[in-house]
Design a binder for these strands. Structure first.
Lengths: 200, 200
DNA sequence: AAAGCACTTGACCACTCGGTCAACAATGAT
DNA sequence: ATCATTGTTGACCGAGTGGTCAAGTGCTTT
């Protein structure tokens, strides 16, 4: 019922893109509306505030990307191969963005999260939530690897270490604006996984 | 000659503090001036722009903190102990900030850098420079450790890995607003250092 | 056909943004 | 005592900021 519209979807998509490769603070509601070809009045018909838009945009983006993660971390795939695929996936995604925009964009959740963590609690919490969801994939891969006797890491802390390594390298790559940094990701992850194997 | 003033120093210090525990975008020139008890006219007497202020504030902050890093990474101290001290130093600094402001602030260079990396080239470059200077301490510790036969990591890539781990955990801790995350730093660093030791 | 709803429009708001400026005040050197 | 130099003051600027709103428009249901 009522008048159909794709304005909301366009706003969410444009907002995510702009915020990811610029920043929350430097992207105004007007910019978002212009790029989405939507009037500001319509913006505030759909979203109570810029901050709510950001939260929803990131949630929607997650839901769109989830199938890909499900595929990468499918139980059909040997657990350590999942991690390998994940590293390659990160690299490809960053490469694609960097080619398109001319600079390394880093992790969208981390970029937004760290920018406003101390300012906007709703966004901070959403950012944390999305990172935690990501973490769960890594953790389950480690748990499966452990069950198969491939590694002896504690899956929980190991996943945190692996995920932090990815975050750190993405951050480093963004600030150095250098994709090559990310070539370190896969070997670093494999060393974390393998380190305890030797110690076991 | 001329009229003496500490306005510039106050602006630099206030700017660094505000930007670190809020963000570049959310801290206005007016805020900085208010807190420093300096008029905006004076601000623009000393700095051509907000962005230049930020660059200089971060450089000055580095110079102030450098002696502490020199002490931690003193050649007098066994190389692996330097890394241990460094981890503890990071923890203490974050604890102190978190106690003072009620939230984990993360790495100041990384926070500013990742926020404006794709927007402001001068700040991005300064952020990179400061990170690189930090990295050099870690690298030299690793080199000394290698010389003493304590590890067999490649100092360059090992330092990058260690530094990225620190960045990642700081980021993770900031977004989760949880200091405990940083307890992982020292063991993670020691595992990176030790991993290759076993493989050697 | 009509009513009800969902969406659109664009003008408008008070305020803040980074930045400017010309007049003025305090200092140290001569 | 003078004077260049340096720093201060605060009003001011135009362009944006996030956000509001009343009137209008086009669907779908009845």
């Amino acid at each position: 019922m009522g008048r159909p519209s794709d304005a909301k979807e366009k706003l969410l998509q444009v907002a995510f893109d702009l915020i990811w490769n610029q920043s929350y603070g430097s992207v105004s509601v007007d910019h978002i509306c212009d790029r989405a070809h939507v009037n500001k009045g319509s913006f505030y018909h759909f979203f109570p505030s810029k901050s709510d838009l950001a939260v929803e945009a990131y949630e929607v983006h997650w839901r769109e990307k989830q199938p890909e993660l499900d595929r990468i971390f499918s139980p059909q795939i040997p657990p350590l191969e999942r991690l390998e695929l994940w590293c390659k996936h990160i690299w490809e995604r960053q490469k694609q963005k960097a080619d398109k925009y001319g600079h390394v964009c880093g992790c969208p959740y981390a970029s937004l999260g760290t920018e406003v963590a101390t300012q906007d609690e709703k966004i901070r919490a959403k950012s944390q939530e999305l990172m935690d969801r990501n973490l769960r994939y890594v953790e389950s891969a480690l748990r499966d690897a452990q069950r198969e006797g491939l590694v002896s890491i504690d899956p929980h802390s190991g996943a945190k270490r692996i995920y932090s390594t990815a975050l750190g390298l993405l951050l480093y790559a963004k600030i150095h604006n250098d994709l090559k940094v990310l070539e370190e990701l896969e070997p670093a992850v494999m060393d974390i996984v393998g380190a305890r194997e030797l110690a076991a």
